[in-house]
């Protein structure tokens, strides 16, 4: 059952994401204001939402670890956060491209989501530093879990902080109003989001399976030695 889950997710992700991108590029109507560049929206926003989902999933597994003290949740939490960070970097990259195409600049402090992902990127990079500089074991699992929980609390707090900071740091020059989405646009967006979530799930399963296999091989090697 578990063995089939990974490939099934991967195939599903490819199909749904392919369909979604097809719809977004060729079927959804062109945005009246932003023209073709607006179509990156169908990639950028689903990636961002998927990253949040990964961080949330990682925090949930972290909570399970602290609750049950079962070591497997440590690996699951770590893998989810790893995925979240990869998607988070993609948010920064696609957001940056969008900013360049729309406004001619690679970075804008007035784009809240982009700023938030920069903060989160720094936060979760520190999470990896914490893990790398601590010996594997129950203590590291606990500390990683606590830090992961701080992360999901930091997301809304930082978002609020970034909104508050706009008043004195940078006047908002560019606004990217939530596009007045036509029904067809919203549908394409939802398909893209579903595809992206499936992709994340597939990658999560694959990495987890790899890491477990790795641990198993090490155990066997140790048993033989």
């Amino acid at each position: 059952m578990r063995n089939n889950l990974g490939p099934a997710l991967a195939v599903g992700a490819l199909l749904v994401l392919g369909t979604g991108l097809g719809l977004a590029l060729f079927w959804a109507p062109e945005d009246a204001d932003q023209g073709v560049s607006q179509r990156i929206f169908y990639v950028h926003v689903p990636i961002a939402l998927t990253a949040y989902a990964c961080f949330g999933w990682g925090a949930w597994k972290a909570l399970r670890l602290l609750w049950t003290r079962e070591a497997r949740y440590d690996l699951e939490s770590y893998t989810a956060i790893h995925m979240g960070t990869i998607f988070g970097v993609l948010v920064l990259v696609t957001g940056s491209i969008w900013a360049k195409v729309s406004w001619g600049i690679w970075w804008s402090w007035s784009e809240r989501q982009l700023v938030l992902f920069l903060v989160l990127f720094l936060f979760y990079s520190a999470y990896f530093m914490l893990r790398y500089s601590t010996d594997p074991g129950p203590r590291r699992a606990n500390m990683s879990a606590v830090y992961a929980l701080f992360g999901v609390v930091l997301i809304p707090v930082s978002f609020l902080a970034i909104r508050l900071a706009e008043n004195f740091i940078h006047p908002v020059v560019f606004t990217r109003e939530g596009p007045q989405m036509a029904g067809s646009m919203f549908f394409a967006f939802c398909v893209c989001l579903a595809g992206m979530l499936l992709l994340a799930a597939a990658l999560y399963q694959a990495e987890l399976a790899g890491k477990r296999l790795d641990a198993r091989v090490r155990e066997l090697r140790e048993a033989l030695a």
């Binding site: 903060v119 936060f123 990079s125 520190a126 530093m129 701080f150 902080a161 008043n167 004195f168």
Partner: peptide
Amino acid sequence: PLLFLPLVIPVVVGGVG
């Protein structure tokens, strides 16, 4: 500092504001 600074950004925002 690596663990601390991302978490303290909201404090700086509130303080400076």
